[in-house]
Design a protein around this nucleic acid. Structure first.
Lengths: 349, 349
DNA sequence: ATCGATTACTACATCGATGGAAGCTGCACC
DNA sequence: GGTGCAGCTTCCATCGATGTAGTAATCGAT
């Protein structure tokens, strides 16, 4: 089925052109393309005409007729955040396996843009949306009137507002903090709280952190809990700077994501702290950067492929059956102990 | 224009419904939406009907009629490669300013998938494509029959095959290598050549490297030139391992991108080399990771925002005027000297 | 030979929005 | 009162692919 020659003419060939060339009706061409029963000889002729004309179906027309577009949106704050970049990669690949294409929307965490996402992205452009909210809480989402299937990532929604995929953030944070306590650390700081948003991932991780301190019989010291406006390296670096300036600096830091941790480690290093000897560091997300960093970063590793798979499955299910009750999927995670939390001598990752 | 109530009914409202509710014709609704002259009273009524019904235009129908989709594709090997992630972010934002949405395609460097991209991505789904080729050379691209506007990134195309945006890779690599020579380094290795593809970015960087060695009166030692299958940290780590096992290891390494450099530095560190004292390292791309790494990474910093802007401009121009001659845009770059190449005492980035 | 069933294909309406031409107002003007 | 002209608005065709209904041809069974 090699295209031997294609007319570079302004208008590209339509089914009608193919039909005319093959001497059949338009519908027969459609049948050939969609694999319906067509006689061998006719099929042959149509296929030759398709090749000759370099015909390719017009997606807009097909979508109009079929009522779907074959496009799903992935809406995140910024795609160049490593965690989202890695997730985007998996989601794009997974979607492709299901015959869907992914379109990227960057909200930048802007509430207006997030509202736009929740409202179905303006026009009926996408069949469904995978959304990682920053500013919206579940009440905002419950209020939505749009019916575009929507899957939330990393969001703890109280009760059946929307489909939702996440890891158990409380448990993961608890494990991470417990690991530090188990290494004999006594002043364990946390970087990454976000006061504004009571339902978010940050709050879950914070409460896991607090629970672990309680479990270990350690006091919760509010001055060791540092907020981060965003989750970039810069924010981690700034938070760490603040911590080193305390009268009694911490001997460990649990960062709510890996980029915060990498930024924090940079500052700690600059200020003469040895990692993990003086300060142990644990991150969250298990991005590729952390594995190769010196020292390599202990972190919570969520099953990202599992998240991508689950999100797509939920979304496709919902596209098929809009009225089914919302589902929550919890994906597994594990602690990856590496150099930054004092796991013996330095070795290759 | 707040949506007061939206029918959750299966089928969402069409222009016809709006027209019926407002007591006008479909075309008048269309005119209201597209800002044509419509009487104030009529406009008012139509707008209320739109709000009441929660009407939003059907993109597929509009696209079918208008002959364009408002979607552009960004095709790269993998979006989670930091350089592409950062570029994707800029391109998504820039496209949005122009009223376009970006759809991501990951080729994984697979020739078949790249061919698919060059052939316009199967169906007339996108209005244009920004493509960073890995396996395709300019001959493959010259052979293309599809007419979807296509902009190439980072590709040195010999003569007017397609529009094309890149930095001057030869000059940049020459600057990077010269910087190392200028620091007194004598055995400067290179990591990242790709023998298979004579027109690619890797070849440009290699020839800049060779030229700089000549400029500095240093011999080109083939054993110090290491290929990399991909440009991930792992490949850099492996290449560095090979270099340290040489009888006479290098005192500097120029890596063809930052992730190679970060991987290489990890291995060098593990094997007891001090950076930059024993081995200086320079990368390429200026990704965020490199700025915060310990030691921070000296690198070539391309004007990524400029690349995104230029690519979009070329693409939109070509969509408007398909037959204009191909253009090449060279975007600026600069050397960012940091710790990894011995720029004095370690300081914050 | 005839009937019913099956197959292979055609004609036509349809999805929703838009461009163009025609129609209907109201109004100024001769 | 008729003409001309705006200014809106309506009607109709259209974009390209697909579902439905229907027709023609073929086959097996009686």
């Amino acid at each position: 089925m090699t295209s031997t020659s294609a007319q570079p003419g302004r208008r590209s060939a339509s089914m009608k052109d193919v039909a005319a060339r093959a001497g059949v009706s338009v519908k027969t061409v459609s049948n050939v393309i969609n694999g319906a029963h067509v006689g061998a000889a006719t099929r042959e002729r149509v296929e030759r005409a398709i090749a000759d004309l370099g015909y390719r179906p017009n997606i807009s027309a097909r979508n109009l007729r079929r009522g779907r577009t074959g496009i799903l949106a992935l809406a995140v704050s910024e795609v160049d955040v490593p965690y989202f970049a890695e997730l985007a990669r998996l989601i794009v690949d997974t979607a492709e396996e299901h015959g869907y294409t992914i379109l990227i929307d960057q909200t930048g965490g802007d509430p207006k843009r997030e509202q736009y996402v929740v409202d179905g992205m303006g026009a009926r452009l996408v069949d469904g949306i995978v959304f990682s909210p920053v500013a919206m809480d579940h009440l905002d989402i419950a209020r939505r009137t749009d019916t575009t299937p929507l899957i939330l990532l990393g969001e703890r929604v109280s009760a059946g507002t929307a489909d939702h995929v996440a890891i158990d953030n409380v448990a993961a944070a608890r494990t991470a903090t417990a690991h530090l306590a188990g290494q004999g650390r006594r002043r364990i700081a946390a970087i990454g709280t976000q006061p504004s948003y009571a339902q978010g991932t940050a709050t879950m991780r914070e409460s896991g952190y607090r629970a672990a301190l309680n479990d270990a019989g350690l006091p919760v010291e509010e001055s060791l809990i540092v907020a981060a406006r965003q989750y970039h390296r810069r924010d981690g670096a700034e938070a760490a700077a603040y911590l080193t300036e305390l009268e009694d600096p911490p001997d460990a830091v649990f960062c709510f994501n890996d980029t915060l941790a990498l930024g924090a480690m940079r500052t700690l290093h600059d200020r003469g702290y040895r990692i993990p000897e003086d300060v142990a560091v644990v991150g969250f997300d298990d991005i590729d950067d952390g594995r190769y960093n010196v020292p390599s970063l202990t972190t919570i590793s969520p099953d990202k492929a599992g998240i991508a798979r689950s999100a797509l499955r939920l979304l496709l299910d919902r596209i098929a059956a809009v009225d089914s009750p919302p589902r929550e999927v919890t994906v597994s995670h594990e602690l990856r102990v590496r150099e930054s939390s004092g796991a013996g001598p330095r070795r290759r990752p």
